[in-house]
Design a protein around this nucleic acid. Structure first.
Lengths: 229, 229
DNA sequence: TAATTTTTCTATCACCCGATAGACGTTTCT
DNA sequence: AGAAACGTCTATCGGGTGATAGAAAAATTA
């Protein structure tokens, strides 16, 4: 039975992943700069210096965490976007897909969202590219939906994409603290919320008119009443 | 002419605010733990030790930043919520109000959003109370809107509130990097996006059916179909 | 079992960080 | 002008940090 020194509790390549797991957990909890390599080592029951057998630097560990976090996000999104369903359905599926990892990879995702900016320039750029590609997939679905007449023509695809992603990312923060909010439920509610707002109006008049107002009088947007459908 | 030592460039109480400004900027850029008191001092052209004339600790500086960030958020929200307009209008105004500080207080707000969790327990709790009160104001507007029949009855007020806030908070992150996206425009788009999704449907069919597809009879909450109206 | 490789350990370093103490220049008050 | 308060400085300290070097234990291979 292995113990004390040179112990190997698990398979050969598996140990490295355990260490990344620990790093993700610690970074997510205390923040990259707030966490020390000692914290990571403690969580693994090993010595701080031993970590450097697996990683050349703390930054490299963060990079690994972020890379695994980003993982197959893009691929899954592309798979959904490439399907034959309507834009609304695709978006609902994309929301579900975006939110899903919070359960089993919450630490990774949170770490990515909050600590990615501390990566060295090179890896930051590489990861940034992936993120931008992901945004592009979403935006593509929205643009196609507009083109097809399924979504409102006055949508700003870029802002809508960012709104959607931001909303989901925010959920990563409070997920687990909110009672009665499993991923499925959150995803469903989010989908209804924004997708119904994006749908091409059937009979109703969009809220548009009231927006750019406000310059004249008081702060508020005096809304004109909607004409019932 | 004041210079070198003991110089006072500005009024008596004003200096402290300059220092908080610098702290906010530095904390926002590098993160609380990633930023050193030296960084703050550099930005002010003063010595690191001199900061401690104004603040007993780095944590105290962070607390000040967060307190000022939270500022009059709640009051402004309450003012809007207390008005006599409809829920949709109030929400649009709330979005605008929420987003507004990013222009002149971006550093503060970003610092609050990202670094608040590193505050010592006591101040974290105090600030947490403020944040929760703010959420409550928004949620109250939504609940009132539902009650009044202006907003969809099947909205989850809590999740909707969090979605709204999360969407806006996310914008704080990318604001300034997105071209052609002044606050006003973002606020308008966001308002259209979610508020139209929240409105009590007049003719349109909600999206419910297509969502839960993919579950194949899984645990999830089978979304109940809305009865139109 | 002996040799080799893999993994962990001990020991240590150079550095930076937050914080304190006390001197010194500046401003304000009387 | 003299005293008091204010604001900044220099100097320094204890402690934690990321990282390196090399010994040693465990696992693997021959």
């Amino acid at each position: 039975m292995p113990s004390a020194r040179g112990a190997r509790t698990v398979g050969p390549r598996r140990r490295a992943e355990e260490i990344i797991d620990a790093a993700a957990a610690v970074f997510a909890e205390r923040g990259y700069h707030g966490a020390s390599t000692q914290d990571v080592a403690d969580r693994l029951g090993m010595r701080q210096a031993s970590l450097y057998y697996y990683f050349p630097s703390k930054e490299a560990a963060l990079e690994q965490v972020c890379l695994r976090s980003v993982g197959d996000f893009v691929e899954r999104a592309q798979a959904i976007a490439g399907g034959h369903r309507g834009a609304a359905e695709k978006l609902a599926a994309l929301i579900q897909s975006h939110l899903a990892p919070v359960e089993i990879r919450g630490d990774y995702v949170r770490c990515f969202l909050r600590e990615r900016r501390f990566l060295p320039r090179d890896s930051a750029r590489r990861i940034g590219r992936v993120a931008r590609r992901y945004e592009g997939v979403l935006q593509g679905v929205i643009e196609a939906g507009i083109e097809a007449g399924e979504l409102r023509r006055d949508l700003d695809p870029r802002l809508t994409t960012l709104a959607l992603i931001g909303m989901c990312n925010a959920a990563m923060e409070w997920y687990g603290r909110e009672p009665d909010a499993p991923v499925r439920r959150i995803a469903d509610r989010f989908a209804v919320l924004v997708i119904d707002g994006m749908r091409a109006a059937r009979g109703a008049t969009p809220f548009s008119g009231s927006r750019a107002k406000r310059s004249g009088g008081r702060a508020g947007s005096r809304p004109r009443r909607r004409i019932g459908g």
